[in-house]
Nucleic acid binder design. Structure first.
Lengths: 174, 174
DNA sequence: TATTGTTATACTCTATAACTATA
DNA sequence: TATAGTTATAGAGTATAACAATA
């Protein structure tokens, strides 16, 4: 913990909602551990990164095709990054890309049969890992609460102006 | 959502606790968005990655020195990765490394005055970002619940045998 | 022999900027 | 002019394996 009451204002660490900081660090560490395990599973069973899995899952759940921009939303933070990942997935024949007839600037991305099959093959193990690490520790009530909280938080974050929180730059050490 | 009741068993996606999947995806996306914003802030105000911030924060809150192994725990998943990061932090004079007198295999890592100052300089903005994105959406009750849940989950994950969930390898597509 | 940490190396991923083409 | 996407490129980060030194 960084800002417990005891050491607040000692060593330059300001006194700032230690309870919230504790929650924040617990959240980040738990998700970090979960994500690491989940990545191991995806790599082992499907040779996929988590980002690639997210892209495939998004395409699998979308009714039809998605444009690159739609596909990127919330998963990848630069267009070139998505182009790179889409290139890999296309080379592995898990997705296809074709120009949109409506707007010829756009690229329509679709998941292939092989892509769907891979998602289907990987998902059980994926759920198994999350169950063992996350859901086994949660009561039904916890699950409801966590779901309500994180859905609200996620929607709030999505609605946020993307770069509102990058203030003036104060160059530090080097 | 990948496994809602409607499309379960359609397209190869098995029917597996859709409610849990929803909670899981909301959690992962929310934290991903939060982490991305937080990384922007740390980079802008302190020229730090999140991993580097974690390492400094851990050293700042530890009473005294930590060994490399202690420092790595939960933050970095390979020893060479920590050596790399420690090298950067040392070069920036934010930490020091020296051989342990007790066990001469070990390296003792300590945070410098500059390191403490940097943490102190970066933390307010960090808290500000998390407040805007996370805590503003949470009631006091939510905060209690989330804290209780994530602390329990984190401790459960920490106690887990690290590599229990990496079953047999089925090579997939490429 | 086991453990702590470093080094060498290869690889994955991301981001910025320049570019093309369409709206 | 603005938007969608790609390409080139550079940089950060990670992991594996081989290694040295100590327990």
């Amino acid at each position: 913990m960084v800002g417990t009451p005891a050491d607040a204002d000692a060593g330059g660490v300001p006194a700032l909602g230690p309870r919230q900081l504790g929650v924040y660090f617990a959240l980040m560490e738990a998700v970090s551990l979960l994500q690491h395990q989940v990545e191991q599973q995806l790599r082992a069973e499907g040779d996929l990164s988590y980002v690639q899995f997210q892209l495939l899952a998004r395409l699998a759940s979308a009714g039809g095709d998605l444009t690159m921009t739609q596909l990127a939303d919330g998963v990848v933070y630069s267009r070139s990054g998505l182009t790179y990942q889409a290139g890999l997935l296309e080379k592995a024949e898990l997705i296809t890309r074709r120009p949109s007839p409506d707007d010829e600037r756009s690229t329509l991305v679709a998941i292939t049969e092989a892509g769907l099959a891979l998602v289907g093959r990987v998902l059980p193990g994926h759920v198994e890992v999350t169950r063992g690490l996350l859901f086994d520790s949660l009561s039904d009530d916890d699950l409801d609460h966590l779901g309500a909280i994180m859905t609200r938080v996620r929607d709030h974050m999505r609605a946020q102006p993307p770069r509102s929180a990058v203030p003036r730059k104060r160059k530090p050490s080097g």
